[in-house]
């Protein structure tokens, strides 16, 4: 039951990364794909109807962590208090930028909020990446399971590397989405930028994967299948290039999503059964069995959440299907 809870949580975070990932990516890379305010407006309206629903996955995953693993929720958010407040403020700033931009027809107003939007999106991606990097590497925990390290500890080269990798990977994800949703100059530029970014993704992927293997080699014994995961990851990454080169936008977007999904699977597999692995790795960490609710409470939460999410997926697909269609950016 605890493992099922872990799987559900990983699934919800995965959905968040795949969905909000593309709108974060579209924004972070927008300085390279758009030149005029009208083009930026087209890029924004490509994500306008969806970003809020995508972000709800983060809120829902936060709630699920709270209900399923209260101890980990309490330890993580109080332990990383200040970095977490930074994430909250960036999320708020980003939401404001997207909502406020179109209320005035004034070029300076647009430029200000567009820049705020791009910068906060890029910063969020890097921060999420750094957070994931630290989860993979482990963090110092005291006896009660609370973070006992320093801020500087979190900014280690490995975690920062994962942050930069996240920026490339989600930029690519955003680019594939942009070519799918928008026509005209931004899409043409996106294709060009994407064929370059792809190489950065590949390079960063290889470096991070090797570093992760070195870092966790001694502590992940339970899952030999992890060693084979780079195969589907590389296949998916190859497929991104293959479809993008042939102008099959939908294929490229799906391949990029598959690439991200395989990465998250690898991350979840590396962490399991810990929610907050300790550093150094032999110290264990806060696992899914630590102070978890009773099996019946977990079962209730799982059932209620899964039933609700099925409905969410159904109406997300239904509305997204009706709201699809290309947005034309002016030539």
């Amino acid at each position: 039951m605890n493992a099922a809870g872990f799987a559900l949580l990983a699934l919800m975070i995965g959905a968040y990364v795949l969905l909000d990932g593309y709108d974060l990516g579209v924004a972070a890379i927008a300085p390279l794909t758009t030149r005029t305010p009208a083009e930026r407006a087209a890029a924004m309206s490509a994500i306008g109807p969806f970003w809020n629903g995508n972000e709800v996955w983060l809120i829902a995953a936060g709630g699920a962590l709270f209900a399923l693993f209260p101890k980990a929720y309490a330890s993580a958010f109080s332990g990383f208090y200040l970095p977490f407040v930074a994430v909250l403020w960036l999320l708020m700033f980003r939401g404001l930028a997207l909502e406020l931009r179109n209320h005035f027809k004034n070029e300076l107003w647009h430029t200000f909020w567009d820049s705020a939007f791009f910068a906060s999106s890029a910063a969020l991606i890097v921060l999420f990446g750094v957070a994931l990097g630290n989860l993979l590497r482990g963090v110092p925990l005291d006896r009660r399971g609370y973070f006992s390290g320093t801020f500087a500890f979190l900014l280690n080269p490995y975690a920062v590397g994962v942050g930069i990798f996240a920026l490339f990977a989600l930029a690519q994800h955003g680019l594939t989405f942009l070519t799918l949703r928008v026509d005209g100059p931004p899409a043409r530029r996106a294709r060009r930028v994407q064929s370059i970014v792809w190489w950065f993704v590949l390079l960063a992927y290889l470096l991070v994967t090797v570093a992760t293997f070195v870092l966790r080699a001694g502590s992940v014994h339970h899952a030999a299948w992890l060693a084979f995961l780079p195969l589907p990851s590389l296949l998916a990454l190859g497929a991104v290039r293959f479809f993008a080169a042939r102008g099959e936008e939908r294929g490229a977007f799906v391949a990029s999503a598959a690439f991200l999904a395989s990465l998250l699977l690898a991350a979840a597999g590396t962490m399991f059964p810990y929610l907050l692995p300790a550093y150094p790795a032999r110290a264990g960490g806060l696992s899914i069995y630590d102070a978890a609710p009773s099996p019946s409470a977990l079962a209730t939460t799982l059932t209620v959440t899964i039933v609700g999410l099925c409905a969410v997926v159904a109406y997300t697909i239904f509305t997204a299907g009706r709201m699809a269609g290309k947005i034309r950016a002016p030539e």
Partner: peptide, 21 residues
């Protein structure tokens, strides 16, 4: 949160899943 999450986390996750979406 650590003590009571199994109870109060429940309506909060339902808020996300059943209402906010």
């Amino acid at each position: 949160a650590a003590r009571s999450g199994a109870v109060i986390g429940q309506p909060l996750v339902m808020e996300g899943v059943y209402a906010f979406f």
